[in-house]
Design a binder for these strands. Structure first.
Lengths: 344, 344
DNA sequence: CTGTTAGCGCATTCAT
DNA sequence: ATGAATGCGCTAACAG
């Protein structure tokens, strides 16, 4: 184990024969200091390659200039984009970021919160796990007056700021698109019921159907546990329906991709046999064959906005009153939804 | 701005009428303490929801139990997998992780190192940016005796531990696979010359050709700047070759995907017209049409190994002498390379 | 068994 | 304009 010794103010002070407080003042450019002393100190600090000890600094001023981020999983492209946006923005505003993943587990989510709080982060950005159907840990943060902002996977009850997409609108957009393509019997493949986005997208689906005067058919609503196996089961079940639906709208792209793959393997052709659409616009959506119609969610933007608002609160620029930021999504029409179009 | 006040040992001490050190001892289960006192303290701590201040603790013991990670970009699935492996392993061993992305910029890489060192991380895990062709900042770490391990994008000269893939072997595997498929004129699309993996994969390519007694044809070696535009240019250039090569091996999957997309748009069929292969086994590789032959690199494993070794060094389990861990890759043959197979 | 003391590195108040 | 003293929250050596 190496030493890894770091230069401290004390050492500079000794070398220059001045007191530590003088060093401190010089390094933060205090005005009440002789310019010459200041110059010498700054020079020496650079020469000795002095780097301030952020831990000590944080302890002293009771602010760590560090934020905590919790996402369900880093390997998801969407969340990685969010993190990227958070990271970039936080850094330019002088903050560091500690990232954790909950691996979709409530227990890990709680544990992550504990360590981040122990690490004295100044605030938290949280996207809830799929398992999170109980929110004591968040109310606890709230009661302890720890700043946090929820994004994407939020809970509606908790009185904190949230950044979400217009999930209802996005689902509405894509289902409307399918309806305009003259599809009538449209399946919705949902996820677990507790999942915020699953509920919201269903709302959008229902809204579009209603607007087109189509009766809700509960047999057209499927539920996947979002594992590949679960998705494949749903794909099989849909394929066996008599008659087959015109189109299938999946809650998220990975589901649609799994469905597509399963159908390909049994000779079902998209979009000739059925139209298909997803949600999120993952990189895979663009490259599958046929390219998948989906709804784009700007993750980088979401991260940026979420962290900006949190920092505004921390810096006293924004009030602590919770606000709700809703980002619009964009329909990305691709070949997979040209079911009836092709028949013409 | 909220207060976010945290309970300290002092407050517990006052409440219980004992000294702070007694609290400290009780909370770390010191044996030399009256069981009853200990019980009372632990109980009270729980009741008051005490969370230790990790900053203070770190400052005191001069170890932060935090690691720094620098990757070129989080949104890359491969690096996200590495991070995931690092995160999981570090957490189970009681360490936190601070993640930074260099955005493929040398300057940001340096800045990241500075802040992480200032944050008193106990060690660093670094994957170099594409721009990094100069290594003073790493030698500086070395000279300051700060523990770090390089992974994937490494520099060979620096005397620190490294975790890499057998890039030569992986490229050899895939080119051999192409050769066994009777392809003879095989193109290699490389990246920037400074890039470690670009060089290594070229070595494997050349090795396979040599083994099959095929003369090196420099006109078959292309170079892309790895942007989509660059990749498309290369795709066009290859398409215009007379006669066309039998197969194309791209340094990384995204290049292969871009090439494939470009070719599709001009009616070139894969694998009928040419075989195509990539490297990394990104999620996209499996879902493009045709599925892309590639070489799988277990990123999660790499992260796990890199961090395990670093922690072993920090904990004194492993010596500080640099070692080199080389992970084997796995050929993933898919349809895109069945060029001559199909002709049979 | 437990309290007192000292100090990690830094910023700030109070002196001078 | 600068130094000395204090304390952020915690641990550990020393002293009983």
């Amino acid at each position: 184990m190496k030493k890894g010794h770091q230069i401290t103010m004390k050492e500079i002070a000794k070398k220059l024969g001045v007191s530590v407080s003088t060093i401190s003042r010089a390094l933060k450019d205090s005005p009440e200091l002789h310019p010459e002393t200041k110059r010498k100190i700054v020079e020496m600090a650079k020469e000795m390659n002095y780097q301030p000890n952020l831990l000590a600094q944080s302890l002293r001023i009771s602010r760590s200039k560090t934020l905590g981020v919790i996402v369900p999983e880093i390997t998801s492209h969407f969340f990685a984009s969010c993190i990227s946006g958070i990271q970039d923005t936080a850094n330019t505003r002088g903050y560091n970021v500690m990232i954790c993943q909950s691996n979709e587990s409530l227990e890990l989510e709680k544990a992550n919160i504990r360590t981040l709080v122990s690490s004295q982060v100044d605030g938290l950005l949280i996207s809830l796990s799929r398992e999170t159907n109980q929110f004591d840990h968040l109310y606890d943060l709230y009661n302890r007056e720890i700043n946090f902002v929820l994004f994407d996977r939020v809970n509606e009850e908790i009185p904190v700021s949230k950044v979400t997409f217009n999930d209802v609108g996005g689902a509405y957009q894509v289902v409307k698109h399918l309806l305009e393509g003259e599809n009538r019997r449209i399946v919705y493949v949902s996820g677990p019921e507790d999942l915020y986005i699953s509920k919201k997208r269903k709302e959008g689906y229902l809204k579009a159907l209603k607007e087109f005067g189509i009766d809700i058919d509960p047999t057209l609503i499927f539920k996947s546990d979002l594992t590949t196996e679960g998705n494949i089961e749903v794909a099989k079940a849909i394929a066996e329906m008599q008659p087959r639906p015109d189109a299938v709208f999946c809650m998220i792209d990975p589901v649609a991709v799994d469905v597509l793959t399963q159908w390909k393997s049994v000779g079902i052709k998209i979009p000739q046999d059925m139209a298909l659409a997803g949600f999120t616009n993952n990189p895979t959506a663009a490259v599958v064959e046929p390219p998948l119609t989906t709804v784009a969610q700007p993750g980088y933007e979401m991260g940026k906005l979420a962290v900006s608002h949190l920092l505004d609160q921390l810096d006293g620029i924004a009030s602590d009153d919770p606000i709700s930021i809703v980002l619009e999504t964009t329909l990305v029409p691709r070949k997979s939804s040209q079911h009836f179009d092709l028949k013409k």
